[in-house]
């Protein structure tokens, strides 16, 4: 009788204490992980909101405005960030997607695919400043071209390429071989099978990866600092040597005194950048969800 009661009794002593300690630690860790994020969000939103709520924020650049004067906006930086991001994506996405197709559809399990895979792994570990210096050496030191928005885009390509390639690879791996075989059995050649069966099946996943990769490089700062000069005016041509972007707009205002109107604009730029990246993340989720509904 007594043995039954001891085995069924609630835990006591050492075991109970250990449980309590671990429980507290786990809860505490969760809170510690969330606090900085909430803190950052709250401070950026509260300090940046006034700036982005004015209409001129979205319609004007900072031409003729100094840190001591109110007014002006971030149009130059928003356009710059979007444009550099777009050029980066236009160059990086085709290379990344075709590279992933090579690795999964054509060279799977071969020595070539292992070599390329290894290189991609190395590339994904390259710090952004190293990518920037590489492009600087190549385009400015060796080829004698000046700094330009394109140069910044190319450095970002080096950062975006491995992420998009890896995510595309994962999505292609998820496409079952039975679909490829079904296509071959219809007498459809391999390249058409890839283009018309494999890619559409994996499309939402690939698109999600592309957008997330884009969101990641849009906040990169080092290549922009090194490869393109910050401008307070709106420049649209990608060949221009001066172009404002949101990260460099934040950087250029980092020493502005708290009492000046320019101070508020730095917070505004930070909030705009966060909104942009968050918007892209939501778009990626939307694409993933939309295609999942279609399957049902």
């Amino acid at each position: 009788m007594s043995t039954t009661t001891t085995t069924l009794a609630a835990p006591r002593g050492g075991r109970r204490a250990a449980d309590g300690v671990i429980r507290v630690l786990v809860y505490l860790s969760a809170v510690v992980a969330i606090v900085p994020l909430v803190w950052i969000l709250v401070s950026i939103v509260t300090q940046g909101l006034p700036a982005i709520l004015s209409a001129s924020w979205w319609t004007q650049d900072l031409a003729g405005t100094t840190d001591r004067r109110a007014g002006g906006g971030a149009l130059h930086a928003i356009i710059g960030t979007l444009e550099i991001g777009l050029v980066t994506a236009v160059v990086a996405v085709p290379i990344a997607v075709m590279g992933a197709i090579f690795l999964i559809e054509y060279a799977r399990g071969t020595r070539w695919s292992r070599i390329v895979s290894f290189m991609v792994d190395i590339l994904s570990g390259v710090p952004s400043i190293v990518a920037a210096l590489f492009i600087y050496t190549l385009m400015i030191t060796l080829l004698g071209l000046g700094r330009s928005a394109i140069a910044a885009s190319l450095a970002l390509v080096l950062l975006m390429l491995p992420t998009v390639l890896r995510s595309t690879e994962e999505m292609l791996k998820l496409v079952p071989d039975s679909l490829r075989e079904a296509s071959y059995a219809l007498g459809i050649p391999k390249w058409k099978t890839v283009v018309d069966v494999v890619i559409p099946t994996a499309f939402s996943g690939i698109a999600t990866g592309v957008i997330l990769g884009l969101a990641r490089v849009m906040g990169e700062t080092a290549p922009l600092l090194i490869l393109v000069a910050y401008a307070r005016n709106l420049y649209v041509s990608p060949a221009t040597s001066n172009m404002g972007t949101l990260p460099t707009m934040i950087n250029s205002g980092r020493n502005v005194a708290e009492t000046l109107p320019g101070y508020e604009r730095v917070w505004g730029a930070a909030l705009t950048l966060i909104l942009l990246v968050m918007g892209l993340n939501l778009l990626a989720r939307g694409i993933a969800r939309a295609s999942r509904l279609k399957d049902r």
């Binding site: 075989e181 296509s183 059995a185 219809l186 007498g187 459809i188 050649p189 069966v197 499309f203 399957d295």
Partner: peptide
């Protein structure tokens, strides 16, 4: 082989319609 498969079709163990279509 692509031409061969145009003449000789195949149905598989598990139904495998193209999910994107």
């Amino acid at each position: 082989p692509v031409a061969v498969r145009r003449l000789i079709g195949m149905v598989f163990q598990r139904p495998n319609p193209f999910p994107s279509m």
